Amino acid sequence: MSLKRQISIIFENAHYFIVNKPPGTPSQPPDSRTWKRTHPDLDPTPLLENFKTLYSSDKQVESCRTVHRIDHCVTGGMLIAKTKDASAKFSRFLRKGGNNGYKLQRKYVAIVEQPSRLNETSNSDINYGPQYNSLISHDGKQITKFKKVDDQCIILQLVTGKKHQIRYHLSQILNQPILNDQKYGSTAKLPRAFKNQIALHSACITTKIGLQTKWHLIPMKYNNTGELWPRKYVSEEGEFISSIKDVLMENWD
Rank of each mutant, 00 (worst) to 15 (best):
C153I: 15
P26K: 03
Y184I: 10
G185L: 13
E113F: 05
T25C: 11
A81F: 14
I241N: 12
Q172E: 14
S56V: 09
S124P: 02
N50D: 00
R192G: 02
N119M: 09
S186Q: 05
P230A: 08
R192D: 11
R231H: 13
K4I: 12
Y102A: 06
N196D: 11
K36L: 03
V112M: 02
I111Y: 10
K96N: 07
D43H: 00
S57V: 09
S91F: 06
D71W: 11
S57M: 03
I9H: 08
K189G: 00
K163W: 07
H39N: 13
L48M: 00
K163S: 10
S87F: 02
S202Y: 00
Q152H: 05
I7H: 09
H68V: 03
H216S: 09
C153P: 14
K84Q: 13
H15G: 01
N133C: 12
R95I: 10
K96Q: 09
K148M: 14
L190C: 04
H138M: 13
G77A: 11
Y128G: 03
K4Y: 03
L179E: 10
E12D: 03
I18T: 00
Q152E: 15
F90M: 08
G77T: 12
K214S: 07
V247N: 04
I80S: 02
I241C: 14
R69G: 01
N13M: 09
S134Q: 12
P191S: 10
E113S: 04
I143R: 12
K148A: 15
R33S: 11
T187R: 09
F240I: 04
D85M: 08
T213E: 15
Q60S: 13
K189R: 01
T25F: 14
F146W: 11
C64N: 09
D246H: 13
T213K: 15
L158S: 02
W252L: 08
L48E: 01
P115M: 07
C204F: 09
N251S: 14
Y108T: 08
P191G: 04
M249A: 08
S242N: 14
H68M: 04
A88W: 03
D253Q: 05
I154C: 04
T160G: 05
G226F: 03
E250S: 12
C64S: 15
E49A: 14
S122F: 07
R92H: 07
N20I: 07
A86K: 08
R92A: 15
H72E: 08
L135N: 06
Q176K: 14
S243P: 00
H72I: 06
T160W: 08
G77L: 10
H169R: 02
G129P: 02
H164T: 04
Q131N: 11
T66E: 00
T160H: 09
T38D: 06
T144D: 05
L190T: 06
T38N: 05
L42A: 11
V247M: 15
F90C: 01
E113D: 09
C153S: 13
I136Y: 04
N251P: 01
S202F: 03
S186H: 01
I173E: 01
L54E: 13
L170Y: 08
